[in-house]
Nucleic acid binder design. Structure first.
Length: 650
RNA sequence: GUCUCCGUAGCUCAAUUGGAUAGAGCGUCGGCCUCCGGAGCCGAAGGUUGCAGGUUCGAAUCCUGCCGGGGAUACCA
């Protein structure tokens, strides 16, 4: 039962007599922020007063007189300008809790209007190492899938892999020129990865060499234009000048750091004599790689054969990460899946008068956008916009979804605005397209998270480190001293991955956040560990008391509410449904972490205040054991919707 | 230049999308184990929500203008 939804529906009956569309007013019934205002509050009398031209408090009174909530609430009060404060009856609370005792779904009903969602998330480029930038999409997308599925919807999770890009040109080139057959036979993934990195390094080296003179020139120009700027004496002009100077200096610093990085790269390469020799022999590698890629796309038999040979290895490689993350997909249709449909997409757009030629490219011009969406380049090649459109067409034909969600970082918002606009123009008007955008993972310096040397941080290394730090904590915990090595490893793995995921999910997805191992594993505050800890404490109670919880659940023992801490906990337990619907309403998993943190917190208060095994009476003990059990199951279920596991001991 | 997102306690972040006295954690200070896991609990201090106006019963949230920061911006994904 969703308490909030129930109250809204009760109020709607009354509101419907006062106004045509009661829904927005019913939505103004909310949980109270302060317990002194009751458990819930109805804020609809104030706007209604405006609309009906009557004093809000009078309207509130009339609503109070008419609304039928006496079975679940008592002591309805009107406060301030016209707030209606609602307090749930303890008897009703207890009755609801008693229905949860044996309810595996913890009071969450499956939707009676199930919808089909296609969710596009993670979508890394195969054959390249996954990095920190892939965390958010992967973890948020997975949490949304799990939550929507649990609520009874049909969800197709699709990993739209980058499996058709230049990186295969690189690997093919590498394979043709640098392969070590013995190494490839033994560990194909490692060898392919070595080849990718080698070719990447060669290309970067040449690019750096090419760019450096130009870069140094712009640094010179930048310095000159800074020196040119002299104060004029006019205060207003000088203020502008100062601002311009600051901008120029920042630009200069940026250019200089670029130059430093490139120099470092070049120096490093030049110090490597073997590498230099290779570089000398492959001076045209940049264009050669492009050629290999173009041949692949054109259907060259040799390159297709190699691509088909490499792809399974690349998939196995990223699958290893997904296994560690405990994340999977219903389908994985990468870019390559769509490549033979792209020409038809462009044809169709042209026939529909949406696309036209401009500067040799085929473009869709859209109102409200300066730049068009280009669907075919001057050289005839297609772009990811084209692939995205083909993907929409395919998904629509295949699953006929009500919604397509794209969990992709915020920088691509304009791309998606255009994509959705084109899709609607193309005829897909009944699909809810959503760009589930998210912010950047930052380092301690408040800049995008990089290693000290400026490289992107690998996802695998991130996992290793989180697990390593978690292991240290488990190892040092005296209460888990009797756990053997293998179990400790398992616990560390669960806690480490959980910390990483939760840290990401607990932030509002639209904001950037600063990555910190200490914070995510600091086992206080809003962390996975804190929630897992509450769960483990409950299991510890059961173990210590030799409690057969299964029997207890099925006994007709009532749950009682005695102390305030019990009521406080009970109320939160009944709000699970509210937490979940908040996640789905705006696709924000942090609503669920907030809920779970609050639940764990209320449990901890209850735990301090209300002895369980040492309760005064047996009925009280049993009641509290049941509260513990529902709490534990809610924590476990809630965390599992975030892709996070629990352990009995940690 | 244009478009777009953001600015909340010393720090890292919330705030049920317009609700009452803006909440957590870290850090600081002070309490709580002869008692179920102290990885915990309770409390204190800490705020002109970037600034200035406006909208209204009510604004961190909406509008306007400044200040400051990120991002995007015609053939990469």
């Amino acid at each position: 039962m969703n308490v909030l939804a129930e109250l809204r529906s009760r109020f709607s009956l009354v509101l419907a007599d006062l106004i045509d569309d009661p829904a927005p007013l019913a939505a103004m019934i909310l949980p109270s922020q302060d317990p002194k205002f009751g458990d819930y509050q109805a804020n609809c009398a104030m706007p209604l007063g405006k609309q009906l031209g009557q004093p809000p408090r009078e309207i509130a009174q009339s609503i109070v007189n008419q609304v039928n909530v006496s079975d679940l609430c008592h002591d309805l009060q009107i406060a301030g300008p016209g707030f209606i404060n609602l307090r749930l009856r303890d008897e009703w609370l207890v009755n609801q809790l008693n229905t949860l005792k044996t309810d595996e779904r913890l009071g969450i009903q499956e939707s009676n209007q199930p919808l089909t969602y296609v969710i596009d998330y993670s979508s890394p480029n195969v054959a390249k190492p996954m990095h920190v930038g892939h965390i958010r999409s992967t973890v948020i997308g997975d949490a949304l899938c799990r939550t929507l599925k649990f609520l009874g919807h049909r969800v197709i999770s699709d990993n739209h892999l980058g499996d058709w890009g230049t990186q295969f040109g690189m690997i093919i080139y590498g394979y043709k020129h640098f392969r070590d057959d013995a190494a490839y036979d033994r560990l194909p993934i490692e060898e392919l990865s070595r080849l990718y990195k080698l070719v990447r390094r060669l290309i970067d080296f040449f690019e750096a060499q090419d760019r450096l003179p130009e870069l140094r020139q712009s640094i010179g120009r930048q310095r000159a234009s800074i020196e040119e700027k002299q104060p004029s004496g006019d205060a207003k002009v000088d203020k502008k000048l100062k601002k311009a100077l600051r901008g120029l200096r920042e630009k200069l610093a940026d250019l200089e750091s670029q130059e430093k990085n490139l120099c470092g790269l070049v120096d490093q390469c030049e110090a490597d004599t073997a590498f230099c020799e290779t570089a000398r022999q492959h001076a045209d590698i940049g264009t050669a790689v492009q050629l290999e890629t173009a041949k692949l796309h054109a259907g060259d038999a040799e390159n297709i054969r190699l691509w088909e040979q490499f792809l399974p290895h690349c998939r196995t490689d990223i699958q290893r990460i997904y296994d560690r993350l405990d994340i999977g997909f219903d389908v994985e249709y990468g870019e390559s899946f769509y490549h033979d449909r792209l020409a038809d997409v462009v044809d169709s757009l042209e026939k529909n008068g949406l696309a036209r030629e401009s500067d040799g490219a085929i473009c869709v011009f859209l109102d409200g956008f300066e730049a068009p969406m280009i669907v075919r380049k001057r050289d005839g090649a297609f772009l990811y916009a084209t692939t995205d459109l083909a993907t929409i067409a395919y998904r629509s034909e295949t699953w006929n979804p009500a919604a397509m969600l794209y969990v992709v970082d915020h920088r691509q918002s304009e791309h998606f605005d255009k994509l959705f606009a084109v899709a609607r123009g193309w005829g897909y008007r009944n699909i809810e397209f959503q760009h589930i955008s998210f912010g950047t993972v930052l380092g301690e310096d408040n800049k995008p998270y990089k290693t000290r040397s400026g490289d992107t941080v690998g996802l695998e290394g991130l996992l290793d480190e989180a697990e390593r730090k978690a292991f240290e904590v488990v190892r040092d915990n005296e209460l888990a001293i009797d756990l053997d090595e293998k179990r400790r490893r398992h616990v560390a793995q669960v806690i480490g991955v959980a910390a990483l995921k939760y840290a990401d999910l607990s932030h509002n997805r639209t904001s950037d956040y600063v990555f910190s191992y200490d914070k995510m594993l600091s086992l206080r505050g809003n962390t996975a560990t804190y929630c897992q800890y509450a769960y483990a404490r409950i299991q510890s109670i059961f173990a210590r008391g030799n409690v057969d919880i299964e029997t207890l659940r099925n006994d007709p023992i009532p749950i009682m509410i005695d102390r305030p801490a019990e009521r406080f906990l009970a109320l939160q337990l009944l709000r699970f449904a509210e937490g979940l619907s908040a996640v789905v309403d705006d696709y924000r998993p942090n609503q669920l972490t907030n809920y779970l943190f609050e639940l764990a917190n209320r449990f901890s208060t209850f735990f301090e205040d209300c002895p369980v095994l040492k309760a005064d009476t047996q009925p009280q003990q049993q009641s509290r054991l049941l509260l513990c059990d529902i709490t534990a199951r809610t924590l476990k279920q809630g965390l599992s919707l975030l892709g996070i596991q629990v352990v009995d001991r940690m």
